[in-house]
Design a protein around this nucleic acid. Structure first.
Lengths: 245, 245
DNA sequence: CGCCGACCTGTAATTTCCTACAATATCCTT
DNA sequence: AAGGATATTGTAGGAAATTACAGGTCGGCG
C-alpha cells in the first residue's frame, strides 16, 4: 500500500498527544482503532505473557479482535503455540508476522494458529514486543489484510504502540499485578542452583537443608510450572522469567 | 526554547531514516549531535550498566561529553552515586534529570556529581532507560543548558534515541551473530527436546535415533557449554540464546 | 587419499532423579 | 481456633541420567 496519503509522522505525534486526554481503557481502544486504521490495521491486541497456570484471557490488557477469534484462540490455548508470541519473547525490535519462524512439519499447532487467524482477516501483522525493567512484559500485535508497512511507517507505529501501551498501563495499573509469586522463594532458589548444574544433594549442602527437601521444592515447582522434570522446570522458569541467570 | 522553529516530528523520522546509511559508530555520534542540537542538547552518552567488577569506561557505548568531564566521572566512579543512573534502573519511561530524586543531606556524592556536571554545561538533562530482553540494558542520557523539552518534543527524542541505540548496537555487536555455530544442529535439537521435558529415550523416538545417540549429543553439548549436566546445558543454551522456546 | 568432525550405536557401572507413601513445624489469614 | 501455604525430613524403589569404555559411517578439505 503506497498510495495512502496522510502524514504518518504527524499522525503519530498527534495520536500521542491525544492519549493524555483519554480516561478509560475503552477510549484507548477507540483511539487506536481510528489511528491504526489509517495504516490498514483492522485488529490489534495488547497482551501479557501467561505463565503455565494462567489463562490467555487473564493477561490480555486491551483488544479489538474479530468476534469469535478470541474465543477460539483462548479455548484452543493457541498462545502456547503462536510463533508470534514466541518471537516476542526473543526479540526487542518490532517485527512483521512473516518474520516469525516456525516449522510447518514439526509444529502443526503453529501452522494451525496462523492459518486460522488468516481466516479472520488477520493475514498480515506487525508485532511490537514490550520490555520492562524485568525483561519481557507484553506485546502489541496488530493485523489486517492490506497493511501500510514500510521503513517510514514502522517507526511511527512503533512510537504509537509504545505510548498507547504506557497509557493503558497507567489506567490499568492497579489491576496489572501479575505474579512473580507463582514460585516460592525456596522453589526459585533450588531451581536457580539446578540451572547452575548442581544436583539436589549439592544444593542441599549449599542451602543447609536435606537433599530430600530440595527434591520436594523442585517437585513442587514442577507441578506449578506444569513441567515433567527438573530440566523442563528450569527452562520454563527462565522462559517466564521467574528466575534469571 | 519555545521559539525554535522546526518540525520535531519530521526531524525525528528523517533522523531514523538517515541512521540506516550510517556505517560507523562515529557517524552515529555525528548524526545524533546534529539532530539533538536542534533541541538544545550539547552532550549525550549511551552507556551500559557496569556491574560491581566493571569500570564505567568499559560499558560506555557512544559518547559526546565535554573534555575532562568523562575523566573526572570515570576517575571518581560517579556512576555508583549518580541519581540519574539509579532512576534508570528503576523506571522504563524517559525522564528529565530534575525528576531523579536524591537527598542532598544523606547523599553528598549524588549532589556532588550533579553539581560538577552543571559546571560542564550539563545543567538540564533528559534520560532514556533502555530495557532489553533481560531487563535493564543501557541508558541514553543527554544534556545541555537550554533545552526544548515539552510533551511534544519528548516523544520525538524518545524515538530518535531508541533507534540510535539500536543502530549503535547493530554496528558494535558482532556478538549478536556469534554463537549459532557453537552447537551442531543435532545438539540444538536434543537440547530443545530436553528443555521440553523429554527424556533421552523420548527424544530418540522423536528423532528416530537411539537413546544412546541422544545422550552422546547432550554430552557433547555439555562439554561445549561447560555444563555439568543436561539441566545446566539447557539453561546455558537459553541464556546464550542458542536455543529458543 | 587421509584427516577431522558430525553423526550414529553399543555395553555396563554408577549416580542422580522422580515418585509415592507419610509426617512435623511455622507463619499467616480468616 | 481452624485452615492453608510454606518449609522441612524420612523411606524406598524404579526410571533416567551420567560416565567410561569402544566402535562404526559419511562428507568436506588440504
Amino acid at each position: 500500500m503506497s498510495d495512502r496519503s496522510f502524514d504518518h509522522a504527524t499522525e503519530a505525534f498527534e495520536f500521542i498527544e491525544r492519549l493524555d486526554d483519554l480516561a478509560t481503557p475503552q477510549d484507548i481502544v477507540d483511539a487506536m482503532e481510528g489511528s491504526f486504521a489509517l495504516f490498514g490495521f483492522e485488529n490489534f491486541i495488547i497482551t501479557g505473557l501467561p505463565n503455565p497456570k494462567e489463562r490467555f484471557d487473564q493477561v490480555v490488557v486491551l483488544k479489538k479482535w474479530p468476534a469469535g477469534w478470541f474465543d477460539i484462540y483462548a479455548k484452543e490455548d493457541y498462545v502456547r503455540a503462536d510463533p508470534i508470541i514466541r518471537l516476542c519473547r526473543n526479540t526487542v525490535q518490532p517485527f512483521e508476522w512473516t518474520e516469525a519462524p516456525f516449522d510447518r512439519a514439526l509444529e502443526p499447532r503453529a501452522a494451525e494458529v496462523m492459518d486460522r487467524a488468516a481466516d479472520f482477516r488477520m493475514r498480515q501483522g506487525f508485532c511490537l514486543p514490550i520490555h520492562g525493567i524485568n525483561g519481557y512484559e507484553a506485546c502489541l500485535s496488530m493485523s489486517g489484510v492490506d497493511l501500510d508497512l514500510s521503513s517510514r511507517t514502522k517507526p511511527a507505529l512503533h512510537l504509537m504502540a509504545m505510548y498507547a501501551f504506557e497509557r493503558a498501563r497507567q489506567l490499568l495499573s492497579p489491576s496489572i499485578h501479575r505474579g512473580p509469586d507463582l514460585l516460592t522463594p525456596r522453589e526459585r532458589e533450588t531451581l536457580l542452583w539446578a540451572a547452575a548444574g548442581k544436583s539436589a544433594a549439592d544444593t542441599g549442602g549449599i542451602l543447609g537443608i536435606t537433599e530430600r527437601t530440595v527434591t520436594a521444592h523442585i517437585v513442587s515447582a514442577c507441578q506449578k510450572l506444569d513441567a515433567t522434570n527438573k530440566t523442563q522446570a528450569v527452562a520454563r522458569a527462565m522462559q517466564y522469567r521467574l528466575i534469571s541467570l
